[in-house]
Design a protein around this nucleic acid. Structure first.
Ligand SMILES: [Mn+2]
Ligand SMILES: [Mn+2]
Ligand SMILES: [Zn+2]
Ligand SMILES: [Zn+2]
Lengths: 151, 151
DNA sequence: CAGCTTATTGCGAATTATTTGCAAATGGCA
DNA sequence: TGCCATTTGCAAATAATTCGCAATAAGCTG
């Protein structure tokens, strides 16, 4: 089932409406690679609907966030800009961000489970969530002096 | 050698001046526990010097940041507020933040070195920096319904 | 299909954290 | 003590995101 279908089902179930704007924003989320900002989503959606407003984009993203369809992310390089992860909040994974081309690579690693458990045991704490970001140079930028992309 | 002495040495070496404001901000950094915000440092410093301006605090923190004496940190709970880590940029460590009392625990774990190397090998990338934050409940908040502190 | 109800949108103004320009103040050497 | 470049205080600027509200439009219902 596609993202739009899932969201439609959800919104209808709670007496909400599936509007053209919401459909366009969902399409943008599916098609834009990486972790786009609200502005990037706005720019994309604007191609189809020149009248859409940036605040609608924000509002829709917040609403998708509440339902767990997108997850907010911040990276240190541009820490003020919120980015939106279409992977949603249930699928947890970690990120690598290239300092040169700003590319983001998603990955997972079973060692984090060990780190988590070690911490919980030592501090008698309960870890609910893990944010791990590696910063550095991707394979391409390591050799080739590359032009920056994105933010 | 104390932080103030280190910074004095550095600033004098580059033709700068060690002002009363800078001294107070450094004292605040040494005395405030955790990872204070600019406002928190400002509030503390204001007790000694009622005339000091918030922009001086920011400017001084940025300057300390450039020299590696403090490191900026952002936590997801209040992601817009920059926090300042007096540990500096050379000492790398990771953080746990309690969702209830906002306490921050610093820790290290050799497994992160393994995660880093595994990533580098798999993606032929070069990792320069690692940010890891665990979110959850500290030992105290796990049992006792606690009142929030800080931001 | 037209009318109705109310969820959603567009718009502009507000908010919040941080930065900046500039004239006045002051640290520290002579 | 005087000089002058470095810092400061202040007020205004920035930038990302949010909010209030009147206008619009989903999606029933008849
Ligand atoms: Mn992701
Ligand atoms: Mn720290
Ligand atoms: Zn790259
Ligand atoms: Zn706690």
């Amino acid at each position: 089932m596609t993202l739009i279908q899932q969201v439609t089902e959800r919104v209808r179930g709670e007496g909400g409406r599936m509007t053209g704007q919401r459909r366009l924003i969902l399409e943008a989320l599916e098609n834009l690679s990486g972790h786009p900002t609200a502005e990037e989503i706005y720019a994309r959606v604007r191609k189809e609907d020149a009248e859409i407003n940036l605040s609608t984009v924000y509002r829709t993203l917040r609403w998708l966030e509440e339902s767990g369809f997108v997850a907010p992310r911040w990276f240190e390089d541009d820490h003020r800009r919120e980015r939106f992860d279409a992977a949603g909040s249930s699928d947890d994974h970690f990120h690598f961000r290239c300092r040169t081309c700003n590319q983001i690579i998603e990955f997972d690693d079973p060692n984090l489970e060990i780190v988590k458990q070690a911490f919980e045991t030592q501090y008698l704490a309960e870890v609910e969530n893990i944010t791990l970001v590696l910063y550095g140079l991707c394979a391409r930028c390591k050799i080739q002096p590359n032009q920056a992309q994105g933010a």
